[in-house]
Design a protein around this nucleic acid. Sequence first.
DNA 1: TTATAAACAGACCGGTTGTCCTGTTTTGTC
DNA 2: GACAAAACAGGACAACCGGTCTGTTTATAA
Lengths: 219, 219
Amino acid sequence: MRKKRTNDPKGMRRRVLDVAEDSFQAHGYHASSLGDLMAAAGVTGGALHHHFPTKKALALAVIEERVAAAVRETWIEPVLAASSAREGVRAVFEAVAAELEQQGYVRGCPLNNLAHELSLADDEFRSALARIFANWRQAIADKIRADHLGGGEGGTDPERFAALVVATYSGAMSMAKTSQDAGVLRECLRGLESFEVSPSQGGSTVKRRRRVLPRPKIA
Amino acid sequence: MRKKRTNDPKGMRRRVLDVAEDSFQAHGYHASSLGDLMAAAGVTGGALHHHFPTKKALALAVIEERVAAAVRETWIEPVLAASSAREGVRAVFEAVAAELEQQGYVRGCPLNNLAHELSLADDEFRSALARIFANWRQAIADKIRADHLGGGEGGTDPERFAALVVATYSGAMSMAKTSQDAGVLRECLRGLESFEVSPSQGGSTVKRRRRVLPRPKIA
DNA sequence: TTATAAACAGACCGGTTGTCCTGTTTTGTC
DNA sequence: GACAAAACAGGACAACCGGTCTGTTTATAA
């Protein structure tokens, strides 16, 4: 009996993270047993333990590598690449809503899913998750500040706007997951779009009230 | 061996629900073992099984009796009793923020905590939780409609406003829990409040543009 | 080649989980 | 008081969980 065994530490680690990310997202951390993950990934206990000594280490890797990357790819990069912060926010909301409606079910936000389950359980989990939230908010705030330099977004407080956007998205995804309906995402986006600047910090040239979130382009 | 035994089904059931509600909130559903609950409540396995045949039945009772009541008491009733929807929302945000800052830690929103962990696990859980979200939103929307009848909040879409408020609160609590800092609640409230347009502008109805959040009426 | 460590296989174990089961005591009803 | 049902006590149990341990195979470097 010859055993074919291809030593591929990189690939094996990636496969484990793939199924762990998926299972944590679908069933949560506690409801995902290492036995299930091993079976799904086609990995033995020895290999799993070699790459991730404990379940906590595995979850920490999922958070820092996969969840952070997901937020970066679906939120931070699109917003920074957009013509403005508000346009970027609008585009992400609609892209996520469209994707959810296409796939027919809602599994929720990876970051919020794990944040709710693990924030109080372990402080390492909590700080890792808090860091992702902070980066998310800061990226949006930075984009607002960039808009300021470009002459736009007169009275918008960057941190306040960022917090509001992240909170609205997180809560909308929570409701969308519970009702299994992505429509609430669009509803909340409409709410944000009718956001008007409070002219308290009237440093901009525009004094009159105006719509701050531009109408969606017809594409 | 004499056993002192006071048959008190109502009280026993209440004690079990008390500790279950607390443990589900603090550690989550899966991380709360029935053994821990029995020890904390001072209840034997037989008694627990008599009132709640399965762990799922216990959780369902917690959701329908305790979580729904919590949302009703901290959100629905204060908002409906407030002078306006906007004032009620502001009061609840500030009351919760003050309470969290006083107790020094954040355990999150009871509804959202369980919603994230259980919505995908079981459809009975999901529908029960979705019903609470729906009642929450409808109460706020109803209050907006009541404001309409009183001559206020012209142009504010009730369902849209309610969805935005609930989403913002849920997401803000999620971040507050993860960062263990209730400050983001106040920040998001400020964001919602900046929906109002120019504070001392006249009440003329010249603008037919959508003003989703007019400023609150100050008596 | 040889030595050494990394990469992996697979069984094993103590502890825990949720549930069930058999009794015993109390309550309600006639 | 008789008696059925509810209310509770407490143990038993099979399944499962996460972690560990030993052994074998593969890569790496001298």
